[in-house]
């Protein structure tokens, strides 16, 4: 049997061209990005009650508190002062400053602290002080206002192929009474001028759906959403995998006829196939990075219509009627 290694065939998908070395360097962030980094650092310092000074536009002097230092560097590390440069150019000008931008060590460390603090976020009470411009709660216009529990989960979807991984964030919320699912609930909460206040003396409903069930509903929903998305990103990787698998199959088929020293067992072939799939198969890894339990208002309007009582549930956060 004449065997031609798959790598010689012309129909193999084009490999990523090797980029010039300059493309591998750390790029300067855009002005918009820089603003975002600055804002993040300022808010972080404010919440941690740490002093922050701007020595020049992209260079911050950070006075780490004992708590922050121990979180950043480990237990019993006393507070200290450090300089953070928000761009590679600034870092190069100030060798005593540490780089602070997405992916950098300090960014990742501070993000861990934020995640740790946020991951605990549960049992909120939401008071909506203004809904758009028109309605102000608790003006319910004759409706019955109850606070229903909503489980909000922020998901990170990681699109992985053999050589690339790209990520995106989305949030998904579920009403633990009705099971209604919402995308973009987090944004709606922000738009509603959410304020963190003690629970008003308004009836709070107990959840009917367990966390486990709610989590499963979300998985089903994400599954559905992903199956309806374009799979164009996965196709070249899938084609590449197919070629590699074919080449492997040919190799092991050729092996069985000759007296080489290789282990020809089916086990080895299966192992190689499994390794190839683990490495090259395109996949989406979905994992939550922050959760919150939110008691959000639902207004129920009832109307007597020809002796039949009709009820309408309205969610002022999303501005949707829930049927």
């Amino acid at each position: 049997m004449s065997y031609i290694p798959s790598v010689l065939s012309n129909d193999r998908p084009a490999e990523t061209p090797v980029e010039s070395l300059t493309d591998l360097s750390i790029k300067e962030p855009t002005p918009a990005a820089l603003k975002g980094f600055q804002k993040f650092l300022e808010i972080f310092c404010q919440y941690m009650k740490m002093k922050l000074e701007w020595l020049c536009p992209n260079l911050a002097l950070l006075h780490l508190s004992n708590e922050a230092a121990s979180l950043l560097e480990g237990r019993r590390i006393p507070g200290y002062t450090c300089k953070l440069a928000l761009s590679p150019q600034t870092a190069a000008k100030h060798p005593d400053a540490a780089l602070f931008m997405p992916g950098s060590y300090h960014w990742d460390r501070i993000l861990e602290i934020v995640r740790e603090k946020a991951s605990n976020c549960s049992k909120y009470v939401v008071e909506i002080t203004a809904l758009g411009k028109a309605v102000s709660l608790p003006e319910t216009d004759g409706g019955l206002l109850v606070y229903e529990p909503h489980l909000l989960i922020h998901w990170c979807l990681n699109y992985v192929t053999g050589n690339v991984s790209q990520q995106r964030n989305l949030d998904l919320a579920i009403n633990l009474i009705s099971g209604d699912l919402f995308y973009g609930y987090f944004q709606s909460l922000l738009a509603c001028q959410l304020e963190e206040t003690p629970l008003p003396h308004i009836p709070k409903t107990r959840a009917k759906i367990s966390y486990k069930k709610a989590y499963d509903f979300m998985l089903q929903e994400l599954n559905y959403m992903l199956s309806n998305e374009s799979s164009a990103w996965a196709k070249p990787a899938q084609a590449h995998l197919e070629l590699e698998l074919t080449a492997l199959a040919k190799y092991y088929a050729g092996q069985s006829t000759e007296e080489s020293s290789f282990n020809k067992s089916q086990w080895e072939y299966d192992k190689s196939r499994r390794e190839l799939k683990q490495r090259l198969a395109p996949r989406v890894m979905a994992s939550p990075f922050a959760t919150a339990l939110i008691y959000a208002p639902i207004i129920t309007y009832e109307m007597d219509f020809d002796g039949e009582v009709l009820a309408l549930r309205f969610d002022p956060v999303t501005g949707q009627s829930l049927g």
Binding site: K27, F40, G103, L111, V114, K117, A118, C121, A290, A292
Partner: peptide, 22 residues
Amino acid sequence: ASWAWHRLCREAEDLTRTHAVS
């Protein structure tokens, strides 16, 4: 826990995803 931290976490995660520089 604080809602403010929750909000900051999401904003920081979004910044991290959109402004990877290398």
